[in-house]
């Protein structure tokens, strides 16, 4: 209150210039970034041709359980009796529950007709660990693969799994076609 008027004025002027600069800075930065955003909006998805089912998907997602889950491409699946994605490698001759590969019992097996069995993934149980994917890729038709399920994914700014994925499998896809499904495009 005791400052002389000229000093006060100079201080005010400096303050206002800094204020204006800050406002212009925020405006400029957001304008520049908004100009760079692309339409349509994007979502994260796993490119199944690159994914090696490393297991990071189960642990790195900000959600628990992960938003990544296994899906079954029925058109590719061979409907094996002894599904290498369903059973432990050592348990060839017995389909008992103790031999299941999936740590959460998320895969169900239904008899279709001799000798075929249908394998389904229970989304509520699957944690996206990729064990079944590895098995199916190694010894089966590679019809099991991992996808980000968009009913769960919160579309993080920067997907925490993408930052940890060893094979660069996470890509951004348009929001209106947010899946990269095996066995749909080429058979449809």
């Amino acid at each position: 209150m005791t400052d002389e008027p000229p000093k006060m004025d100079r201080r005010r002027f400096c303050g206002q210039s800094v204020w204006g600069l800050c406002l212009a800075g925020i405006g400029g930065l957001s304008g520049y970034l908004l100009g760079r955003t692309r339409q349509p909006e994007t979502r994260w998805q796993i490119d199944p041709t690159k994914c090696i089912a490393c297991g990071n998907c189960a642990t790195y997602c900000v959600l628990e359980p992960s938003a990544v889950k296994c899906v079954q491409a029925y058109k590719i699946c061979a409907y094996c009796d002894f599904c290498p994605g369903f059973l432990e490698p050592g348990a060839r001759l017995d389909t008992g529950a103790e031999n299941e590969l999936c740590p959460t019992g998320a895969i169900t097996r239904h008899f279709v007709e001799e000798p075929y069995f249908e394998y389904n993934i229970l989304d509520e149980l699957c944690i996206g660990c990729g064990k079944c994917v590895k098995g199916c890729e190694a010894f089966g038709n590679a019809s099991l693969f991992l996808q980000v399920h968009h009913d769960r994914c919160v579309n993080c700014n920067e997907c925490a799994i993408a930052a940890a994925c060893p094979s660069d499998a996470f890509v951004r896809v348009p929001v209106d076609r947010p899946y990269l499904l095996k066995g749909v495009e080429e058979h449809a």
Binding site: Y74, I76, E113, R152, V175
Partner: peptide, 26 residues
């Protein structure tokens, strides 16, 4: 590799319909 078709997809005789692949909406 993508879709290694080690086994041909089966020909069903019982009129079995394949369920669609899950892809819940965003």
């Amino acid at each position: 590799t993508w879709a290694i078709e080690r086994f041909p997809p089966p020909d069903f005789e019982s009129g079995y319909e394949m369920p669609p692949t899950q892809a819940p909406d965003a």
